[in-house]
């Protein structure tokens, strides 16, 4: 399968790139549309200058901060909600209500409260990531084999130790899934937030804002496409990281019986 697959895959990518190179000039847009070579040159220039790296670091830091907040909130809450049925019932309505709101929709509120800086951006990220982690953690707790909980209880474990030593490791695969989904949303949200804030003032930093600047002020379409590629690469890299981690935990999924 390997060779034919590789040839076909490469063919279709090459065809697309050639088509882009040939027809770029004919795309009817308000600005001249760059061809492949333009974008490659632009990528080289941007990589050489420090701006792109700096913006990337800013965006990544925000994602990391917001995502950490989401984990710190969602993981213990999800464990407890999954373990204590009444608490789950109690919070169910609120969780359903808030998770239905697209995370980016609350950005203006966070900007109003926290200003246009990192805090608002990280808050949106946290909002985006918290629900997938929470919901998957709860589901993970439910799927923990009740026998294992029983076994731990008859071995003399209190509720707190059952949570940390049985339920938590038992639901790790689902928690990883939740984190992966949450990270995907978080990465989308940070770009959206930076784009939107960039549209408003132009003083926030981050790769999303660079995109907005190259669209609105510099009208540099080549750079814009380079930024898109960087966003894609980073998104892919982050996801791959989570997948590798997730696989690491996979053997644990094997049931005890």
């Amino acid at each position: 399968m390997g060779a034919a697959r590789l040839v076909r895959g490469t063919t279709s990518i090459v065809v697309i790139l050639v088509a882009w190179q040939l027809f770029a000039g004919r795309i009817p847009t308000s600005l001249p549309f760059p061809n492949v070579v333009d974008v490659a040159e632009s990528a080289y220039d941007l990589a050489a200058s420090g701006d792109l790296w700096q913006a990337t670091v800013v965006s990544l830091q925000r994602v990391l901060l917001g995502f950490s907040i989401a984990v710190v909130i969602a993981l213990p809450l999800g464990l407890t909600m999954g373990y204590v049925g009444l608490l789950e019932r109690f919070l169910d309505g609120l969780v359903q209500a808030f998770r239905s709101i697209a995370p980016i929709a609350v950005l203006p509120l966070f900007i109003l409260w926290f200003g246009q800086g990192d805090v608002a951006a990280a808050s949106v990220v946290a909002y985006a990531a918290v629900f997938p982690i929470l919901i998957n953690t709860i589901a993970g707790v439910h799927s923990t084999e009740t026998r294992l909980v029983d076994a731990a209880r008859t071995l003399g474990l209190g509720h707190r130790h059952v949570l940390t030593h049985v339920v938590l490791p038992g639901c790790t695969p689902q928690v990883m899934t939740g984190m992966r989904l949450g990270m995907g949303l978080a990465w989308g949200s940070i770009i959206a937030a930076e784009l939107a804030v960039g549209a408003k003032t132009g003083a926030s930093g981050g790769i999303g804002q660079l995109m907005f600047i190259s669209y609105a002020y510099q009208t540099d379409v080549s750079a814009l496409i380079v930024y898109m590629i960087v966003v894609g690469l980073l998104g892919f890299g982050i996801d791959a990281l989570f997948r590798t981690f997730g696989r690491k935990w996979e053997p644990q999924r094997r049931s005890s019986s």
Binding site: A151, A152, G156, H161, P169
Partner: peptide, 25 residues
Amino acid sequence: FQDYALFPWKTVWDNITFGLRYGVR
């Protein structure tokens, strides 16, 4: 238990010491 209820993420040794390490005693 009939289905053993061993903790799949713990080794044999860690399963055997599980109660001694995390239980009330």
